[in-house]
Design a protein around this nucleic acid. Structure first.
Length: 745
RNA sequence: GGGCGGUUAGCUCAGUUGGUAGAGCAACCCAUUUACACUGGGAAGGUCAGAGGUUCAAGUCCUCUACCGCCCACCA
């Protein structure tokens, strides 16, 4: 092939499509012209000022490292929606951001420092550790934002947010103060999930259960104690204050209400009251439960109901804090052996059996959770408060409600719809079992709790109080507290900004189903409380991205695909569409390099289709542009092709509107390859060879029309190659493809 | 223990409201410079996990069973 054969063809088309060269250049053009920002779209006449808004706030990736394929899927799905709506003419906003991810980030940096320098956070001190974490977070942030660009995300960088930046911190502090004033945030001495390894509390849903073999011991506290009990943790029994039995259990009825003194339980005197409680299973063990209020969630609740004393016997380092020299200061596991040995030697041990037990461990550190009573901050999910302004169906403005009710109503009445729908059940089930949310963490990286103490005075506020001697609470807030505000803190709340007014509630939240509870439910809670509305109308839950064998991608397994590497090797477009086709919401997917390679071929196919169309129609006088305003006489045969294209356009539009991206992508792929290239273009060769002038003109016009429409519709899915092709097929007065009108309205 | 999802071609998965099964990859045959070998054409491959039911009609709706996966609870 030489220039003589293709005199009018752009010379770029003479070589295979090269995404590595193209993508960075195209992204720079988009950023330069500013169409990612809706204000500029309005300024440049792409969007009408009174157009319907369409908003997505990007789920902020954690600044703990680099992006993985799951992020690539997220960015692709969101970018498809954003580009589609922008092309439709909506006032479209996509705000990017990152999450400080408190515990995850701090523990990652701590681990590195420990490994490289052998120092703990206490060796460094609060200020120095924070400096190091911030430095790490900044680097991580920079990597992430360059990756987000590499994938082709058309988000508005001028509005970028960080969960721990100044504006978001103000939002967090304002929210804390407001909830505190409403009595929804309280400080209480309550049992929490303590992670002795991470030296912090964690939330219920940050617990991971691990099944382990353990021993179940059955014994009596003393020879004259009337009831035997069973336990897997004998060392906690020095903290027992009651034995609970089922109220209907005839075996123990006579003892209920009596109190027994145990003079010496491995060196510790006990006073045990026999109580009746419905929560006890008659059929488990002896049917009697030794109640250890301070070291078991269930027992703490029993103690609440029966007003029992709650001595703490284990400390923050998982060591025994009472007892004689045999057990005092010993690790719980050692103390267990000692107490079992003592029971055995006293002849109190009746049975020892193997049992499977689920051990609670901390998700981030792997430490075994020790339930402990601690003074912590909580959000009360059941307390009534007045919601002054409400747009939530079923809750009147000015009426009494609870946070739990808000979370429930919003999904129940469909103001927020979850896709796929079956996750509704999971959501409701979670809310029903929800307990008060412990929001304080004993780590340093994060939003420091906005509470100051001075003697007996307490100040809760956004600013440090005036005067000498105020000391701020040492703890920081759970990272999900700030994430919960994300849809509106990114729009400027608590200020009454224009953005907040225009773009909130947002349209879609797209995220993985694994954080439905962590995040989605908390956003509903926070938004309902602060604004009396919903954070988003639709929640699109995607599945996890796994490797070709179905394993979770991870660095340690070496099977993780790096989206940027993929983009360099096959093109971001190929990676994007490979993640979309065959991927349904809520279902995990498998991705392999082979699949991505296939779609690299597809990008090249589009390239060659373009080359063929342009070279075939070269020299044929077409009276008008492909926008349909003027056209030549169209043959019946070509009219059928146009009708088919219109039908496809309607289908694709419907599929995107209804979140069936996998179908839209697949249809476009097959239309382009199996219909347009394999049938229409093949047949056109004959038309151009032997047809009449009228047939040739009609066909030339039709091919260009199909090519342009096809490229427009593929743009949300494969933005780079389509924009590059567009630059070669557009008419002089056409805009960039990113700002070109979608073919149906 | 409670709940949710899955089971469709060798492999990975689609299949929107019920209308006699589809794609990609792999494998098979043919074509060899054709816009594109990052190609074209062709053929092969499935009693849609099993059983029952509703219906003129079921991969699709209902009931039950089996197996796989996930989530929640945490029996102390």
């Amino acid at each position: 092939m030489n220039e003589k054969e293709f005199p009018q063809i752009d010379e770029r088309l003479l070589k295979p499509y090269n995404p590595a060269e193209t993508e960075g250049r195209i992204y720079a053009i988009w950023e330069e012209i500013g169409f990612f920002n809706p204000d500029i779209c309005i300024e440049k006449g792409v969007t009408k000022e009174d157009a319907k808004p369409f908003t997505i706030i990007m789920p902020p990736p954690n600044v703990t490292g680099v992006l993985h394929m799951g992020h690539a899927l997220m960015l692709t799905l969101e970018d498809i929606m954003i580009r589609y709506h922008r092309m439709k003419g909506d006032r479209t906003l996509w705000i990017p951001g990152t999450d400080h991810a408190a515990i995850a980030t701090q523990s990652k940096v701590e681990k590195e420092i420990q490994k490289k320098e052998g120092k703990s956070r206490h060796d460094l001190g609060r200020e120095e550790l924070l400096r190091r974490v911030r430095e790490f977070a900044q680097e991580s942030h920079d990597t992430i934002t360059s990756q987000v660009r590499a994938i082709g995300s058309s988000c508005d960088w001028s509005r970028e947010a960080f969960t721990l930046d100044e504006t978001r911190t103000k939002a967090v502090y304002t929210m804390f103060k407001k909830m505190h004033e409403d009595g929804l945030i309280y400080r209480g001495h309550r049992i929490v999930n303590w992670d002795p390894k991470g030296q912090t509390t964690i939330a219920d849903d940050e617990i991971v259960y691990e099944e382990r073999k353990s021993k179940l011991y059955t014994f009596k506290y003393s020879h004259d104690f009337p009831i035997s009990i069973s336990t897997t943790r004998p060392e906690t029994k020095i903290g027992d204050t009651a034995v609970a039995v089922h109220p209907d259990d005839p075996r123990y009825k006579e003892y209920i209400g009596k109190t027994y003194g145990v003079r010496d339980f491995c060196g510790v005197p006990l006073e045990i009251k026999i109580i009746a409680d419905e929560s006890v299973e008659k059929d488990f063990g002896t049917g009697a439960l030794g109640v250890t209020p301070s070291h078991s969630m269930i027992d703490w609740e029993i103690a609440d109901r029966h007003d029992l004393p709650r001595p703490q016997v284990i400390n923050e380092y998982a060591k025994m804090m009472i007892g004689d020299e045999r057990i005092l200061g010993k690790k719980t596991t050692d103390a267990r052996e000692i107490i079992v040995e003592w029971l055995r030697s006293e002849g109190l041990l009746e049975k020892e059996e193997e049992a499977n037990q689920n051990i609670s461990t901390a998700e981030r550190t792997g430490g075994i959770i020790e339930p402990l009573p601690k003074l912590q901050w909580f959000i009360d999910v059941n307390k009534s408060f007045t919601l002054p302004h409400s747009e939530i169906k079923g809750i009147e403005s000015g009426s009494q409600t609870t946070l739990k009710e808000i979370m429930k109503k919003v999904v129940e009445n469909g103001q927020t719809a979850i896709i796929p729908e079956h996750f509704n059940k999971t959501y409701f089930h979670w809310i029903e079992n929800l307990r008060d949310w412990c929001i304080s963490r004993q780590i340093w990286y994060g939003h420091r709790i906005p509470v100051w103490y001075k003697d007996k005075e307490i100040h809760v506020g956004v600013e440090t109080p005036e005067g000498e001697g105020w000391i701020q609470d040492e703890d920081t807030l759970d990272t999900w507290f700030s994430s919960g505000l994300w849809t509106f803190s990114t729009l400027g709340w608590p200020e009454k900004t224009k953005d907040l007014e225009i773009y909130h509630p947002t349209n879609v939240l797209q995220t993985g189903y694994d954080i439905l509870f962590f995040w989605v439910a908390r956003m509903v809670l926070m938004t309902g409380y602060a604004l009396g509305t919903v954070p988003f109308h639709t929640v699109y839950l995607s599945g996890l991205v796994r490797d070709a064998k179905g394993q979770k991608m991870s660095k340690s397994l070496g099977n993780a695909l790096d989206p940027v590497e993929i983009a360099q090797k096959y093109g971001a477009d190929a990676g994007r569409i490979a993640l979309i086709i065959g991927n349904t919401p809520g279902t995990d997917m498998r991705i392999s390099e082979d699949k991505i390679k296939g779609y690299k071929h597809f990008a090249n196919k589009l390239w060659n289709i373009t080359r063929f169309v342009l070279s075939s129609i070269d020299g044929i006088e077409i009276p008008a542009s492909a926008d349909g305003s003027q056209k030549p006489k169209i043959t019946d045969k070509d009219q059928k092709l146009i009708d088919r294209l219109e039908e496809l356009t309607k289908e694709i539009t419907g599929d995107i509107e209804e979140f069936r991206f996998h179908l839209a992508g697949e249809k476009l792929y097959h239309y382009s390859w199996s219909e347009f290239a394999d049938i229409i273009l093949e047949e056109s060769k004959e038309v151009f060879k032997t047809g009449t002038e009228e047939e040739k003109t009609s066909r030339a016009w039709t091919l260009k029309k199909i090519l342009k429409t096809n490229i427009i519709m593929l743009h949300p899915f494969m933005p780079f190659v389509t924009e590059e092709i567009w630059s070669m097929i557009k008419n002089e007065n056409d805009n960039l493809l990113i700002a070109t009108k979608w073919p149906t309205q």
